[in-house]
């Protein structure tokens, strides 16, 4: 889409673009190029010089058991976070869409946790779930469940999944509610007159009509689980125990800053870039489709 009118000015447009282009060049293109560059280099053992090693960094990490494990961890983590937060949000949105009295109060109470930073969410959930002082941990113990996220990898995973999913419910709720409210009431009324019950109406009318929203949220939630949950993992488990909660982004951080293995970290960054680009392309294609919907 283009504007028909435009101003004629030789210098002004460049001046207007300058700040953003400068920031983008310095903090986006330079680092991105750096990542590509470093991904094909290997520092010598004394750290004096870099040597071109071609794709061997990639070869190395792709055959690294820990890296492949992190891939698996990320896949499990992301699917669980996405599913739990979206399902809960959809349930609440459908309920909130039906009440008349108190609808605004419910809405406010459900969306305000959006303001909680992932890292703060991590701290709050630790406070609740830590075996020594956590209230919920205590009641689980009373119920006879041996809860120990500091030693048990599955428990740790459950913990970061719950905290991450919890934090994302508000966001998903907001979009589902907007999607539900955009469905023409007359369609639902027509289905009711056709004799469809509440569940059948949801399954055959509402859910299919909601699919653009659902698909959009799917992409956003996967991106969220990939990148923004770093704060949750870092505060709650630091990727442990025994790498059981080390996701790809966490590993980039751990290898790059803790392990100081820049070549490997850069190669991981490049792989992540590819993953994000893929997600973005999927999202763009979806937007295209929605335009012609």
């Amino acid at each position: 889409m283009e504007k028909r009118v435009s101003f004629n000015h030789r210098l002004l447009p460049y001046l207007l673009l300058l700040p953003q282009l400068a920031v983008t060049a310095v903090f986006f293109f330079w680092p991105a190029a750096q990542a590509l560059y470093q991904s094909v280099l290997q520092p010598d053992p004394f750290g004096f010089d870099n040597r071109f090693v071609g794709l061997s960094n990639f070869q190395y990490i792709l055959s690294d058991r820990y890296y492949l494990e992190a891939f698996g961890t990320t896949a499990i983590f992301s699917s669980l976070v996405t599913f739990i937060s979206m399902a809960t949000a959809l349930f609440l949105a459908v309920a909130a869409d039906q009440v008349i009295r108190g609808a605004n109060a419910y809405k406010t109470l459900i969306i305000w946790p959006y303001a909680v930073a992932p890292a703060v969410a991590g701290v709050m959930w630790i406070f609740m779930m830590q075996p020594s002082i956590g209230v919920i941990a205590y009641y689980m113990k009373v119920a006879g469940f041996r809860w120990n996220p500091t030693l048990d990898g599955t428990h740790a995973m459950a913990l970061v999944v719950l905290a991450s999913a919890w934090k994302q419910i508000s966001y998903n709720f907001l979009f589902f509610l907007a999607g539900l409210q955009a469905i023409p009431r007359s369609l639902i009324e027509a289905a009711a007159i056709d004799g469809a019950g509440r569940w059948l109406r949801f399954r055959t009318i509402i859910f299919p009509l909601l699919s653009p929203t659902t698909f959009f949220l799917l992409v956003v939630n996967i991106a969220y689980a990939f990148f923004e949950t770093f704060g949750v993992i870092h505060t709650m488990t630091s990727g442990g125990p025994g790498r059981s909660t080390t996701t790809l982004v966490y590993k980039v951080y751990a290898d790059g800053f803790v392990g100081q293995d820049l070549g490997s970290s850069a190669a991981q960054s490049v792989i992540l870039m590819a993953v994000v680009s893929l997600l973005t392309i999927v999202q763009f294609r979806y937007i295209e489709r929605r335009v012609h919907y």
């Binding site: 750096q34 990148f227 982004v249 980039v252 800053f257 820049l262 960054s269 870039m273």
Partner: peptide, 10 residues
């Protein structure tokens, strides 16, 4: 396309 997390080290 690329959030800061992806290019964090450089």
């Amino acid at each position: 396309m690329l959030p800061v997390e992806v290019r964090i080290v450089p």
